[in-house]
Design a protein around this nucleic acid. Sequence first.
DNA 1: GTTGCATTGAAATTGAGTCTCAATCTATTT
DNA 2: AAATAGATTGAGACTCAATTTCAATGCAAC
Lengths: 151, 151
Amino acid sequence: MQQNIFRKFLEDRGWRLTKQRNAILQKAFSCKGHFDPESLYMEMRKKGMKASRASVYRTLNLLCECGLVGKVSKTEHGTIYEHTLGSHHDHMVCTDCGEIIEFYSESLEKLQEEICREMDFEGKSHILEIRGHCRHCRMKKNVLGGESSNG
Amino acid sequence: MQQNIFRKFLEDRGWRLTKQRNAILQKAFSCKGHFDPESLYMEMRKKGMKASRASVYRTLNLLCECGLVGKVSKTEHGTIYEHTLGSHHDHMVCTDCGEIIEFYSESLEKLQEEICREMDFEGKSHILEIRGHCRHCRMKKNVLGGESSNG
DNA sequence: GTTGCATTGAAATTGAGTCTCAATCTATTT
DNA sequence: AAATAGATTGAGACTCAATTTCAATGCAAC
C-alpha cells in the first residue's frame, strides 16, 4: 500500500510521514486519473484538509522521487501528475477537449528498447504523448460542421 | 524556403513579415538543433539584431502555429524549440548532461499509427522523449565511480 | 496627409513553482 | 518534565518564463 511505501521512503532518510504529507498522499491517490498541484491544493482546502501550497509542491516532489507519482506532462497551466502504482502506460491527448486516454503497447515498449540498444543509449523511462482528436470530438465536429466529404 | 512559408502564413491573415519577425525567423533557423526563446533573444541582442523579448515570444508562437518550429519539451528553464523543416524525429534526453539526441524510426511511427487505429483516436502528432544516460556519461561514470561489478 | 490597422517595445502582470525563516512539532536524552 | 536537536510547516517573498497592456510607431491604401 502506498502509505507504507512512502513511510519507508521517508524513514530511510530519517524523515516522518506527517499529517500533511499523508493527507496529500491520500488526496493524490483519491484522484481518478491525472491531477495537477493547484487543483489538489484547492480541493484539499475545500474539504478542510489543511496543508499549505508549499507543502503540496514539496510533497509531490517527494512522491515523485519515491516513484509513487509521476509527471505526465507540462502544460501551459502547470504540471500534470498521475499516480503510478498501476503499470506503465502512455497517453493520447485530445487537443479539442483535453481528455487524456491511457494506453499500453508491449510492442511499443519492446521497439523502444531495441532502438535504445541500437543507439547505444541507456533508456530509463520515456514519455510518449500522442496528440490528436478523440472519437467523441470527431463525431461532435461532424455533426456541427456537417462536412460530408464526397471523396 | 522558410521565409516564403512564413510570409504566406502571415499574408493569409493580413499580416506582415516585418524586420523583427524576419530576424527572429533567421536566428531560429540558424541554430543548429534546439533552442530556447531566452537564449535566442540574448544572442540577437549580442549581434545587434534588435527585437524585444515580447516579439521573440510572439513570433515563436506564430512560427509554431504555421508549423515551421515546434516545441520539443518544457523544462524547468523554459520551453525548448526546434525548427521542423527537416523530417520528423523523436528525442533521447540524457538526464546527466542534458544532451538531446535525435532519432527516427519508421517502425515506431507505423506502430503508433496502428495503435491509434486500434484505439479509434485520430493521431495528429506525437512527442516521444526517452530519458536515460548517453554513452558518454555512462563511460564517465564508470571511470569516476570505478564500479567494477563482478556479476 | 490622414485614416486604419498591424506592430513594436518597455514595463506591468500573471502564474507556476521554489525558497526563506520564524514558529512548531516530535522523538530522544537527561 | 525540561532540554535539546532536527524535521516540518505555512505565509509570504521571491524567481523566472511567458503573456498582456498600451502608447508610440510603421506601413499601406485612399
